[in-house]
Design a protein around this nucleic acid. Structure first.
Lengths: 169, 169
DNA sequence: CATAGGACAGTCCATAGTGGACTATCGTTA
DNA sequence: TAACGATAGTCCACTATGGACTGTCCTATG
């Protein structure tokens, strides 16, 4: 039962190490509130992945069935091992921007309109991030450090889009 | 034959508008040299996508078969229309970082080692970008403006990772 | 002159991920 | 008491990923 572990897998494993016994639904909420800014996962995927990992022996399942059937997942030692191996394995290829707005600029869309909208959205998101940081909602060092990356890139985006918004067409 | 147009589709359409009569192989090289920093596409996808678009009437094909069979693709008016509609349609959801290195930090990987490697790679990539900009390899305004976004984010990454590399563990 | 090696040009496949519609249950409040 | 929103999840068709695999052409060198 050796399966291919993907980024999705490691996100699930990583969250379950911090919060064993979580259901898929709660995983979804946690992801939306935290990692999704770095790496989002589709809902359908969030429900399928833990099942896959359980089959491979990286998680155990416990179904609490009172009408609404919930399944709680817990990471196994093998799961932790896999996660640690991934964390310890060296760095990766560089990321792509993967920004549709920039892509449209690339292909000749007029910057003005795009820039104005992007600027507002990035500003809103930066505010969210700063709030999250000030409230100190993030107990662990990892998420805090990662949040700094997100904030730095938001600031860069804001500078970029606001320059474009100001520039004449 | 209405198909769903994805980002992949628009990249192919966009490149074919600038260079009609291109083969899949040349598309691949062009993508690797240009857009891939913003949005990469897998080789297998680059060969399948134009075929799909041709079926939907957004491209025409012309097979030049002398031993090695090449297929040249050209954008149709419908193709241009679809592309323009996409370019004109408002801005998108915000991008995610989608950076595995940051994700590992999030889940508790030790920053030092990761940061050192990322720093070197980002520096190398920044140099590539700056070279590209100085040489003026990009005739069109779109790619040039998009390149500025890529450069800005590289600089941000470099600052981030170099801070992390310096910080005590 | 033939041949080996590399660049060129592509195919194929299993598996993973996306987007989005759909179903159903529970708790509250009007 | 039924309506409504939050909770909890399923399903499906289609797209994308990663990577192995197959050939063809060009050129240098032995």
């Amino acid at each position: 039962m050796s399966i291919r572990l993907t980024t999705t897998s490691y996100i699930v494993l990583g969250l379950l190490r911090w919060a064993p016994g979580t259901t898929a639904y709660d995983l979804e909420r946690t992801i939306r509130a935290t990692v999704s800014h770095i790496w989002a996962i589709q809902r359908s995927q969030i429900y399928r992945e833990p099942a896959r990992l359980a089959e491979a022996g990286l998680l155990t399942t416990e179904t609490v069935g009172d009408g609404r059937q919930k399944t709680r997942f817990t990471i196994t030692p093998e799961g932790e091992e896999a996660l640690d191996a991934w964390l310890a394995a060296g760095a990766e290829e560089l990321p792509q921007l993967r920004d549709l707005a920039t892509l449209k600029i690339f292909f000749g869309a007029r910057p003005q309109a795009i820039a104005r909208v992007q600027l507002l959205r990035h500003q809103a998101r930066l505010k969210e991030y700063e709030l999250l940081r000030e409230i100190g909602g993030l107990a662990q060092a990892g998420p805090r450090t990662a949040l700094e990356a997100a904030i730095a890139h938001e600031r860069t985006s804001i500078r970029y889009w606001s320059d474009l918004a100001k520039a004449e067409d």
